[in-house]
Amino acid sequence: MTTIKDIAKAVGVSCTTVSNVIHGRSGRVSAETIDRINEAIDQLGYVPNMSARSLVSSSSKVIGVISHLTPHNNESIVEDPFHSAFIGSIERTLSNNGYYLMLRTVQTTSELLAFLRNWNVDGLFFTGVFEDEFFQFLTELDIPIVLIDSYVSNSKMCKVGLEDYKGGYTATRYLIEHGHRDIAFASPPIRERGVVSERFQGYKQALAEASLPFRPELVFERELDVETTIALGTQLAKRNDLTAVFATADIMAVGIMAGIQQSGKKVPEDISVIGFDDINLCQLSSPRLTTIHQDAPLKGKLAVEFLIDLLENNPIENREIILPIRLVERDSVNSLA
């Protein structure tokens, strides 16, 4: 990994000068030299050593929540009620322990570099991380990291996840037990070894166990914004080759129900819908949404407890927690049996 010494050698200045620029103590450094140092930092991919910085400036008490989930419509992660719930839990638990939260969405390693260069955070939470170049970069960082809903592993990091596969299986099996044979799968874009992929595999397993064929034409990958999910519901209402939909997020399921109903069809009489997450909106929709429950507040609380253990160098016996799911029956699934 690039060091301050490497930057100093590339620019032709002392390590002290480079350190002063990095830490904002550049009053006696010329603008030209500052520009050259920053250019070398970018070119060489320098990442500050957060442990060393904390020795100089003391703990910032700031924890970053970094979302690597980047919808094509550029909506914020907090517009999803589920993410709002677990981020709210993270903030409350951090606050109770004397820490502050900073929320950021980053798409690339260069964006993360810029963030770390400008903010002395004590630790980081990451959501939406996959086995790719971005994750490999995370493994090189010298800072406590907790992964949330990510199917990647590193011995330095802790993880909080969910029974995603079982959730997808349970939702689909429930529809099958109620007589449905033509079941659509609706989700955000499916990425290998991600949360949605695990739920998708559970969906396919339930179909296989019931000797039902997997039909790719009944898989619908869409973004989670209101307009897109309602449009998908309208599209599904026009089809006559399905009786039920499993949506991998409640916010998508409710949008689909709205589109179906706006098209003149009824839920669940014409098309049944089951969701995933059990956000508060499920009890306000009409009909009330049958869904797979996960405990978002507990997920946030456990993630913070992991991070505090890392910050305090406490012994951690198990660095991964997988939370359970359960089915919540309401009114959006009709029985054809």
Rank of each mutant, 00 (worst) to 15 (best):
S332D: 06
E223V: 14
F246I: 02
N49I: 01
P287W: 08
V152Y: 06
I37Q: 13
K265A: 02
P81M: 06
A247H: 05
I176D: 00
A244Q: 05
E198V: 00
K9D: 14
A253C: 13
L236Q: 00
V267L: 06
S211A: 15
I90N: 05
D270W: 02
F200D: 00
M257Q: 12
T3G: 01
P213C: 08
R53G: 09
K265L: 15
K166N: 07
L101E: 08
E221A: 07
S263F: 06
K301L: 04
Q201R: 14
A303S: 15
C158L: 08
D42W: 07
V121T: 04
Q43F: 05
S285P: 00
L44T: 08
A237L: 11
D142V: 09
G12A: 10
A10Y: 03
G255L: 12
S286C: 11
S95V: 01
Q107N: 12
H293R: 12
V121H: 05
G12M: 12
A237Q: 09
T2D: 04
T3S: 13
G167D: 05
K5V: 05
D182H: 14
I37Y: 09
A296M: 04
E163D: 13
Y203Q: 07
S57D: 07
I190T: 09
E131D: 15
G12I: 11
